[in-house]
């Protein structure tokens, strides 16, 4: 019985493959992270990411099949991320999927990475109560979306410049905390006092985000303050980020009443963000949905689950890259 979809994800710095059934049960999921490859550069180096994907992707696929203990005859289709993402890494995944699809005589569907993230909270078990408001916060994306049901997506707001994860990583670098900077900034912030009033760009208006001004303000403060206390800078930065995210979520939930608030993306790992979101949701009587971090960050299981949506909705984008896909595109 062909009851599994093979998902392939290579849009940034994780090489991943997974087998998932139509209900979201994850039969196997393998992810090879490239953190060490990019650490010396303080961010993802696209050419090196592409090279690592070529080396890792077939072994990752093999491992996925071996872990699942299933044969190709159980696979219904291959879903592969076609964008948004880095063009070189995307091409590796797309061509790998095309080769596998030809050899195994399986359809290959190009999947929007963002649709994968939107569905990630329903992996393993149906966690999301619809209608839902979703905050996707990662190194690549800062997006607020509204989902009436898994198939109907509306973009509420996105960033005009940097992503939240990018701001975290850059501030981490300014504070000499290495890469990735996010978790280190959060840890340092806990030991400091939010004594510096950094700007909260666009906090009064709408549901879009702007982070570059905040990032620059941190940079200026570090240059100009006579003896900046790093833990206070981190605490003040995190406070500003949290106020921005919570304010936008509150506004979104007021405009589009939702049963649940879902937070996904790498920044969903932030203990401070999780605590602030819990407080907001308790106050508004909305269910907070925080999927396990292995599904909240880039992975192939979410791509496989989104592929089931595509199959159900009769969508079959060709496996060619489109780096500029928006959240509502297929």
């Amino acid at each position: 019985m062909r009851n599994l979809v093979l998902g392939i994800e290579s849009s940034c710095d994780d090489t991943a493959a997974a087998l998932v059934d139509a209900a979201g049960a994850v039969v196997a999921s393998v992810k090879v992270a490239q953190t060490e490859v990019h650490r010396p550069y303080g961010g993802v180096y696209p050419e090196l990411a592409s090279r690592a994907h070529v080396a890792e992707i077939v072994p990752a696929l093999h491992q996925t099949l071996a872990d699942a203990g299933v044969g190709v005859e159980q696979i219904r289709a291959i879903g592969v991320t076609r964008g948004p993402g880095l063009i070189g890494p995307l091409l590796v995944g797309l061509n790998t999927a095309a080769g596998l699809g030809l050899g195994w005589e399986l359809p290959v569907i190009g999947i929007n990475h963002l649709r994968g993230h939107l569905r990630s909270a329903d992996l393993e078990e149906a966690r999301v109560k619809y209608p839902a408001t979703i905050l996707l916060v990662s190194g690549g994306h800062t997006i607020l979306a509204y989902m009436e049901d898994p198939a109907s997506i509306r973009l509420l707001g996105t960033t005009r410049d940097d992503s939240v994860g990018e701001a975290y990583d850059k501030v981490g670098r300014m504070l000499g905390l290495g890469y990735p900077g996010g978790p280190a900034v959060d840890r340092l912030a806990k030991t400091g006092t939010p004594s510096i009033r950094f700007p909260r760009p666009m906090i009064q208006q709408g549901l879009d985000f702007s982070l570059s001004g905040l990032k620059s303000a941190v940079s200026r403060h570090l240059e100009q303050a006579p003896d900046p206390r790093h833990e206070d800078v981190a605490a003040s930065f995190v406070e500003a980020i949290l106020e921005l995210l919570v304010t936008k979520c509150r506004r979104a939930l007021a405009e589009q009443p939702s049963q649940s608030l879902v937070i996904v993306g790498g920044v969903a790992a932030s203990p401070q963000l999780r605590a602030a979101a819990a407080e907001l949701c308790a106050e508004l009587d909305v269910e907070l949905c925080l999927p396990p971090l292995r599904w909240a960050t880039d992975n192939a299981a979410m791509i496989a689950l989104a592929t089931w949506d595509y199959i159900e909705q009769g969508q079959q984008p060709r496996p060619v890259p489109d780096v500029r896909l928006s959240i509502v595109d297929y």
């Binding site: 070529v54 077939v58 696929l61 995944g93 061509n95």
Partner: peptide, 19 residues
């Protein structure tokens, strides 16, 4: 051409593996 070579190599590796 870097990206093109990588595309062909990815495709060939996967096709060979699948067969």
């Amino acid at each position: 051409a870097l990206g093109s070579v990588r595309s062909g190599v990815s495709f060939a590796n996967a096709l060979a593996y699948s067969l």
